[in-house]
Computed example of a mutant assay.
Amino acid sequence: MKADVNPPPSVLSPRQSQKNATRQRVLEAARESFDTLGYEGTTIREIARKAGVSVGSVFTTFASKGEILSQVMQDRLDRLYGELDRVAPHLRGSTADRLRSMFAIHFAFEAPHVRLFLAHVAAAYDWTLPKTAVPYGRTPRLQEIMRECLAKGVEEGDVDPGLNLQEIVDLLLAAYAWTYHFAITEAADVDARTAIMDRQIGLICEGFRPR
């Protein structure tokens, strides 16, 4: 009879289990703080207080406030990008139509936590942010999904092949972030912001059509 060659599942040490639990409490507390206080209003001390841990424990787990927010958003956005990956191959219509559908999914996903997403955008303008942080605009998967959409448009003939696709992606990201300005200044809901973005996509698409 052969011996069992499969190693037993690894068991976390009490220290590692405690460290993981602390990390989870910090992330949950940070998510709540960023969603209510914004990026500037949230401090490491506030996160530690909500998590019931010391400030030192927070810094043992994360290097900065920006890094904490990056992890909070990565955990959320992984679900969104998975949904976009699933539906993108099935979207129909012109490049503009497909982009509108993709951003409508993004708007609907972020609708319950608009302030958290605004904190994500605000972090992009924090010049002290460490390279380990991933604020809005540095999210490579979202950019890849949009470039794939635009590349398909080139193949179909409604995107000028001579244009730099990354520059179009940058413009779309800027337009999307700007629509959240109306959530603050005009209390625009998800439908209103989606309608604004739809119009902006139309203007952008007019610029990249083949001449």
Rank of each mutant, 00 (worst) to 15 (best):
R15W: 13
Q16I: 14
A51L: 04
A195F: 04
A96S: 09
A51P: 02
C149Y: 07
A29R: 04
V154F: 01
N20A: 15
I184M: 08
Y176F: 15
S17E: 13
P130H: 03
L171E: 15
E32K: 05
V26W: 10
H90A: 10
L84Q: 09
E46C: 06
S13A: 10
D126V: 02
A111D: 08
A104P: 05
L77W: 07
R79I: 15
E156G: 05
Q74L: 14
M73F: 01
E46V: 08
E144H: 07
I44Q: 00
L37E: 13
L99P: 01
R92E: 15
R199Y: 12
L91S: 14
E83L: 10
Y180I: 00
I145V: 05
G56W: 02
D85E: 08
T42L: 08
M73N: 08
G153P: 02
T36F: 03
P7E: 05
D78F: 14
R25T: 03
A177H: 07
M1T: 12
F62K: 03
Y176S: 11
T179I: 14
R49K: 14
D160N: 11
D191F: 13
W127Q: 08
I204F: 02
A133D: 00
I196H: 10
V190N: 04
D75T: 15
T36E: 10
K50E: 09
V26K: 04
A51Q: 05
A96H: 01
M146Q: 10
E110S: 12
L165S: 01
F62E: 04
S17L: 11
A123I: 03
F117I: 02
M1V: 11
M1H: 14
L165P: 00
L77G: 10
A30S: 08
A3E: 12
A21Q: 08
P135I: 00
D158K: 09
A175D: 15
Q143V: 06
L84A: 05
P112A: 01
A21S: 12
V169N: 04
R76D: 15
H181L: 11
T179G: 09
R23G: 00
L84C: 07
S13E: 10
I145M: 03
I105N: 07
K152F: 15
L12C: 06
V190M: 13
V114D: 03
L91Q: 11
V169F: 10
W127S: 12
Q18N: 12
D170Y: 04
N20M: 15
P112I: 01
P8R: 13
V26T: 06
V169H: 06
G153D: 03
T42P: 05
V114Y: 03
